[in-house]
């Protein structure tokens, strides 16, 4: 009874058992947006990119109203950082744009998606590993500008300040590293795990 031919017969009995979509409904679907993981990440990156550009323009306009000083240099540094961010977002979009689910069979597609997501996550992690120390040293540098370079250098000669600074730097790096990893695992961990399981099943 449950042999393949019987199952085929049952399967075919339901050929028209679904609610057919009209051509107009299908045409309308083409205007919709993708709910795929790649589509969602792309939308997030576009949002971040537009937000960064908007903030950069606002900061640039504000910088023109300032007198030369610590504040102006802080804003200029932020603008330089934002410019670096633009390359970062474009690189992310290029990475995401190279995924096409039609370019191979299921196994190839899964391998491709797994590879792309892993590269994307590693790029994300590495870029933050570089950016957080930049933020940290910029913070110290502007602190020095605010308090006066001579006073700052005097402070830095005190062992207590050095120990405190090293401890704070350690805590800052560990905290940001842990947060970034947690965030990435929450966002993409399940997807990667599922892709890995599927690939193992295909190889097994």
């Amino acid at each position: 009874m449950e042999e393949l031919d019987d199952l085929k017969q049952i399967w075919k009995s339901h050929e028209q058992g679904y609610e057919p979509k009209k051509e107009s409904e299908i045409a309308l679907m083409l205007q919709g947006r993708s709910n795929s993981i790649i589509g969602k990440i792309k939308r997030n990156v576009w949002f971040e990119l537009i937000f960064t550009i908007a903030c950069s323009i606002a900061l640039l306009v504000y910088a023109f109203t300032l007198e030369p000083g610590a504040m102006m240099w802080t804003i200029i540094s932020l603008l330089i950082l934002f410019a670096a961010y633009l390359f970062y977002y474009v690189k992310k979009l290029i990475l995401l744009g190279s995924f096409d689910p039609s370019d191979g069979n299921i196994k190839t597609s899964l391998e491709h998606l797994y590879r792309k997501l892993t590269i994307y996550i590693n790029f994300y992690r590495k870029s933050y590993a570089v950016l957080y120390p930049v933020y940290f040293f910029l913070g110290i540098f502007f602190g020095a500008l605010e308090t006066g370079i001579d006073g700052f250098l005097d402070k830095m000669r005190e062992p207590k300040t050095v120990v405190l600074l090293v401890a704070f730097a350690g805590a800052f790096f560990v905290f940001t590293f842990v947060i970034t990893n947690l965030y990435l695992r929450k966002l993409y961990g399940n997807h990667l795990m599922k892709l890995k399981e599927l690939l193992n099943e295909l190889k097994g």
Partner: peptide
């Protein structure tokens, strides 16, 4: 190919 890829590869 595309329908199954979309359904399986967690693109949803």
């Amino acid at each position: 190919r595309i329908a199954l890829n979309t359904a399986i590869s967690g693109l949803r």
